[in-house]
Design a binder for these strands. Structure first.
Lengths: 212, 212
DNA sequence: GTCTATATCCTGATAGAC
DNA sequence: GTCTATCAGGATATAGAC
């Protein structure tokens, strides 16, 4: 640790790494759609020329690949956590996974948003869709187990319930915006805090909207 | 009615109307995404040349406009139906609207799918998003009224609940495929009938997944 | 690491013959 | 109503100077 440390707090922070460029690109992809985004759009958003982008990444599709890969890694990591493995009843593991999925979605919002919007036009997109299906399948297994243990109602089809459950969770990307640094949540009316969102998802999914 | 009727059952049914061309175009838009679809793609799918398409419609965006307009008309018509107006309690009107929204979504599947995917890049897209917000707002009012009448739990934020409710309903477009003519539902394992889907949406949304 | 300039292909849309 | 031929602009990507 004898090296002099460069001043990373300086306002001038302009040389890109593949990682920092990715963050810019993903924002633009989500705003305009992947297909609706040109390299020209990316270059303007990043403040460098089109050709400079090719110094950092091989092309547009590599940016997509890195982004959806990051989202998928975050989601699959949930299954390795204690709450998804160590609890006795399947319904408790399921509740944990649902809650954490909502949390990861909000923590990695732009990357998961992009993941959920790929349509299968390219090889990268088809690979991402395949891995998403694997994730859904693992959650469906938890539902099946919880029904078998008598904790989930048996009068709804497990596959259909899984789809609607993910529909609810995944729709968070359509409107959730993370609180800016220095703001408490609750400052803007109508904006929800992340924990409130994850808790409400679990509550509605398991207990419904009706008064009990 | 003295006119001779043309034989519309003939297999050769190849001259397009704006309406029949729209049906083809919407399929392609949903498969490739609106931005990912070129006039070349459309012409191949329709079996006519690019320039022939311009005989029927002014351009690509007019096809989008007709499609999302049709979806929005179908959705807003729900509020005019008896079940959404004549019932005494707000929760009953809400249940009706939720059930019917799911039904209309499946009946007009390709058009609603396209509507739900527009991102606001063009004027048409922004207009469609604005009308969608109006629809959501009307449903949110029903939720508010049902909470006030004591039929919906008061411990969830109305706006958040509305968003999650629509998240669940709208996600149907991601996987629902209508049964082909001549097939009963239930023939393919894992494919759900439309009524089963709409009923399950209502059941999960109002009563939740847990055994009561 | 960034730029300007350029290559090559594809885009939405039009003109005009049949 | 459909076609071929064509346009002008925009797309991804590369070459090579600084």
């Amino acid at each position: 640790m004898a090296m002099a440390k460069r001043d990373t707090t300086a306002p001038k922070r302009d040389t890109y790494t593949p990682e920092s460029l990715l963050a810019v690109a993903v924002e633009v992809f989500n705003e305009r759609g992947y297909d609706g985004t040109s390299m020209e759009h990316l270059s303007r958003a990043a403040g460098i020329s089109k050709s400079s982008i090719y110094h950092h990444v091989r092309g547009k599709e590599e940016l997509l690949e890195r982004a959806v890969g990051r989202a998928l890694d975050g989601l699959f990591a949930i299954f390795e956590e204690d709450g998804a493995r160590a609890q006795e009843r399947a319904i408790d593991r399921l509740e944990y996974v649902v809650h954490r999925t909502a949390e990861v979605l909000m923590a990695e919002l732009p990357y998961v948003t992009l993941l959920l919007r790929v349509r299968g036009n390219t090889g990268t997109e088809r690979w991402a869709m395949e891995r998403r299906r694997e994730f859904d399948h693992e959650v469906a297994e938890l539902l099946r187990a919880a029904v078998a243990e008598g904790d989930l109602r048996a009068d709804v089809d497990v596959r259909l319930a899984t789809r609607l459950l993910f529909g609810m969770i995944n729709s968070i990307v359509e409107w959730y915006r993370p609180p800016k640094d220095g703001e408490r949540h609750g400052e803007h009316p109508g904006e929800h805090g992340g924990e409130q969102v994850a808790d409400t998802v679990v509550r509605i999914a398991f207990d419904g909207l009706r008064t009990s």
